[in-house]
Amino acid sequence: MSLVLHYHPYSRAAGTLWALEEAGQPYELKVVDIMKGEQKGPGLVAKNPMGKLPTLEDGDVVVTEAAAICLYLADRYAPGKLAPALDDPRRGTYLRWSFFAPSVIEPAVMAKVSGWTYKEVAAGWGNYDSMIAAAESALAHGPFVLGEQFSMADVVLGGLLRFMLQFKTIEPRAAFTGYVARLDQRPAFQRAEARNLAMRQQLGLK
């Protein structure tokens, strides 16, 4: 088993389980106690200088950043299925919305929630209202980002929207709630959720 995910169920690594389940490869979870700050220990920092989760090892390859891990798994283990081929015209759309989630949605929501003052022309995420309109447009042409075909872009985008809807940091537009409800029906997502729950129980967490 070459895939090892440095993990805690109360970290972004919990969402990475869904990507691993979709990829369909065996994997090992290596629990990192973030309550005790173990993610900042020398062992993990040597692999991920940010000292954060998720951190994925695939043999000698180390991949960090949740969205990057998702795209890596799709290209490495499910090309043409979870990731459009390099010469597929849909790959541009796939990459566009995969990067939009962490680089535009997340900071735009943080800016709104935290009351940041900034110049919109200087911020890569623009403003909240434009972000919402753009995110809705990503879902306008089908049940998934690529229309009828589910892809790892849906794990990245849908996972973030689910989290934000759960914590009420983004408005529950019908396009978002319907999309997340469709994603919740995926067997891989349900397996990941069951494993996250089991790990919380094993670790004595609520």
Rank of each mutant, 00 (worst) to 15 (best):
L161T: 03
I105P: 10
S2D: 15
M35D: 13
F100P: 05
A123E: 15
A83D: 11
R195G: 03
E65Q: 03
K47I: 05
V155K: 01
F163Y: 14
G80F: 05
L20E: 01
A74E: 04
A138S: 10
G15L: 14
F189N: 12
A194M: 08
Q201I: 11
P54G: 01
E57M: 08
V63N: 06
A78W: 08
G178A: 05
M110P: 06
P102L: 07
E193N: 05
P84D: 12
A192E: 07
A78M: 07
R162I: 10
P102F: 08
P143I: 10
G92P: 02
A78C: 03
P107C: 06
L160C: 11
E193D: 07
L29G: 08
L73Y: 02
R191N: 12
C70K: 07
L157K: 05
A181D: 13
V4S: 11
V104W: 03
S2W: 14
Q202H: 15
V155L: 04
A74P: 06
A13H: 06
N127A: 06
Y118W: 06
G43M: 00
G147N: 03
L95C: 05
L86N: 13
V63K: 04
Q39M: 11
G37M: 05
A133E: 15
V104N: 11
D75L: 01
Q202A: 15
F176E: 05
A140T: 14
V61F: 09
D60Q: 14
D58E: 08
F99E: 15
E28W: 10
M110D: 10
H8S: 00
Q201M: 09
L157V: 04
L17M: 10
A192M: 13
A66N: 07
R90M: 02
V31T: 08
F144L: 02
Y72T: 00
A181W: 13
V121E: 09
Q149C: 01
S11D: 08
C70T: 12
S114I: 05
P107A: 08
R91N: 06
V121R: 05
K81P: 04
L86E: 15
A67N: 12
P49C: 06
Q39A: 11
K52E: 13
T55P: 00
P107F: 02
R200I: 03
S137L: 09
Y77Q: 06
A198F: 12
P102G: 06
L205Y: 12
F163L: 15
M50V: 03
K81L: 11
G159Q: 14
G147D: 08
G41K: 00
G147M: 03
I69K: 09
Q39E: 14
V61H: 14
T16A: 10
L44S: 01
D184G: 06
A66F: 02
A68F: 01
V62A: 07
L71D: 07
I69G: 09
G51H: 04
S130C: 02
D154R: 10
D184I: 04
